[in-house]
């Protein structure tokens, strides 16, 4: 499965790109699996996702829990806790 990932704020800065298409391995089922998979892709990902419990994720632009399944997702947003307002 190929999925578009979009990154924001310090997650974007640490990974070093705003977005990318990745091929998701078959054993990556949930958001939590995806974050662990990304951490294995290199130092910049490890750096960005060092503390996955603080990372927020949106599937097709809606907030989801880390236990959510990612099957069928067109776009997955990965970002730090929000600080707007």
């Amino acid at each position: 499965m190929s999925t578009k990932l979009v990154y924001f704020a310090w997650v974007r800065e640490r990974i070093g790109k705003p977005e990318e298409e990745i091929t998701v391995p078959a054993d990556v089922v949930t958001v939590r699996d995806l974050l662990n998979h990304l951490k294995s892709l290199g130092e910049e990902y490890e750096n960005a996702l060092q503390y996955p419990e603080v990372i927020r994720v949106a599937i097709d632009q809606e907030h989801v829990e880390h236990s959510e399944k990612i099957a069928g997702a067109r776009e997955i947003g990965i970002f730090p806790p929000m600080t707007g307002g």
Binding site: M82, T83, G84
Partner: peptide
């Protein structure tokens, strides 16, 4: 709710 769930970030 905007502060905690609308996707904005300040640098």
């Amino acid at each position: 709710f905007l502060k905690t769930s609308a996707p904005f970030w300040k640098k």
